[in-house]
Amino acid sequence: MGMLIQSVASINPLQLWSDSNSPVHLQNATVTLIQQDGEIIECRLSFPVTPELYHRIDSEALFNLKPEVRTPLTNSHFQPELDIHIEATLKPDRLPLLRPQATNAEEAAFYLSNLSQQQASSPDSYIPSETNHPFTLLETENWLALSVKQQQNSGEIGYRTFWSYVSPQTLNGNSVSEEELSENITRFFTDVVGGSLDSAVQEFADETVGTLSNFFQELTSKSSLNPSMFQTVLNFFTEDDWPFTKIQGDLALRSAFQGKNGTWDCYAKVREAQKQFVFYSICSVNAPEDKRQAIAEFISRANYGTIIGNFELDFIDGEIRFKTSIDVEGDTLSSALIQSLVYTNVMMMDEYLPGILAVVSGESSAVDAIANIEGE
């Protein structure tokens, strides 16, 4: 598991929208972005509200503040003259809308602020049925409240919700196991009932378990329909029985391929923010300095007429590779697309590898090597 990286930025003001199409005005909010292996796994929003606004949030169950997912209020009662602080996390099925727009909290805050201004200036431009519209990031129903707190002279009071008991990885749908979910629910109910399970509490527990089960079923369904690009790539190479290793700190995999004419390393890399996937076959030999002009001619001749992909030469160290790539902005990366790019790539390297080796060794000129391969 990669290291978690957290960044924080302020956003002020911010306008969200409720199911009743009524705005929720927030001041002095803070955006926290949590990333793992370069991918956003959680986006949190923290903000103070007046007691009047909290009453509305409470009564309308905004930010999914349903009674059945709250722990009891600790120590005292909220005082009417002090602000109440709420921390919420973005629903995981909304993260794909944010990932292409932000690599840190400042960029996330800037993007949400711009969306808020656009929505405020033209509130009728968004139709609620457009489930994948960026404006859904501004809907309170797409945020899960984690905690509600108020700082009083006697100390902090407040309550937590079930969502604060769940790790970002689980909430993100990457590892929703029955064992982990059961443990989370157990810890939640321990705080809710304090070990007392009378019939009334049991009824409450049954209702809560139903609510949570429905949520995670929906989460798993959406996650399977809209996996991250990197997860799609992982799934492909796993299902296609490729041995590979994950490159630490990058959305990339390293593998090897054995063709008819040799064996070489391959790299599969995802650029989530740019919605791009690239696959490389790295030639098993580098071109020595005195052969790089000849190899440059060889790959230039090889590239001419090639429809998918191209050979590349690094003049600094002589590395030779074949690259295939795709940009899926506005679309979805599928296993079929990955398969086409990967196998086109390795077949091209395998076909031209004898010519590369002949030119590198000095056994053939670039012209003759290409002629031998292409039958000219």
Rank of each mutant, 00 (worst) to 15 (best):
V8M: 09
V8F: 02
V8P: 01
S10Q: 13
W17Y: 11
S20G: 07
N21S: 14
S22N: 10
P23R: 04
Q27C: 11
N28G: 08
A29Y: 00
T32V: 09
T32H: 05
L33W: 00
I34E: 14
I34A: 07
C43F: 01
P48L: 11
P51C: 07
R56Y: 03
I57E: 01
I57R: 00
S59W: 01
L62T: 00
F63T: 07
K66S: 09
T71I: 08
T71E: 13
P72F: 02
T74G: 08
E81G: 06
I84G: 01
E87V: 14
A88I: 04
A88E: 04
L97C: 05
E106V: 08
E107W: 02
A109M: 09
Y111D: 04
Y111R: 03
L112Y: 02
L115I: 11
S116D: 01
Q118K: 10
Q118R: 14
A120L: 10
S125H: 13
S129R: 12
E130R: 10
T131I: 13
H133F: 02
H133P: 04
P134I: 08
F135G: 02
L137N: 04
E139N: 15
E139H: 13
E139I: 03
N142W: 02
N142A: 06
W143A: 05
W143T: 03
L144Y: 04
S147Y: 00
V148W: 00
K149G: 03
K149D: 11
Q151V: 11
Q152H: 04
N153A: 15
G155M: 10
R160E: 11
W163R: 07
Q169M: 15
T170D: 11
L171N: 07
N172E: 07
N174P: 01
S177L: 12
E179C: 06
N184S: 13
V192P: 00
G194E: 08
Q202D: 06
E203Q: 14
V209Y: 00
G210D: 11
L212S: 06
E218H: 10
S221N: 12
K222W: 03
K222D: 14
P227K: 08
F237Q: 03
F237D: 05
P243I: 12
D250E: 15
R254C: 03
G262M: 06
A268V: 02
A268L: 14
F279A: 09
Y280R: 06
S281G: 07
C283H: 07
S284A: 12
V285K: 15
E289H: 09
R292Q: 15
Q293W: 04
A294H: 05
I295R: 00
E297W: 00
I299M: 04
S300V: 03
A302K: 02
G305V: 08
I307T: 14
I308V: 15
G309V: 08
E312W: 02
E312R: 12
L313C: 09
D314C: 08
D314I: 04
F315Y: 15
I316Q: 13
I316G: 06
E319G: 09
E319R: 13
E319D: 14
I320K: 02
T324V: 07
D327Y: 05
E329G: 11
S334Q: 09
A336L: 10
I338Y: 00
V342F: 01
N345C: 11
M347R: 15
M347Y: 08
M348Q: 15
D350P: 05
Y352C: 05
P354Q: 07
L357C: 09
A358P: 01
V359Y: 00
G362M: 07
S364Y: 01
S364R: 14
D368K: 12
A369T: 04
I370G: 03
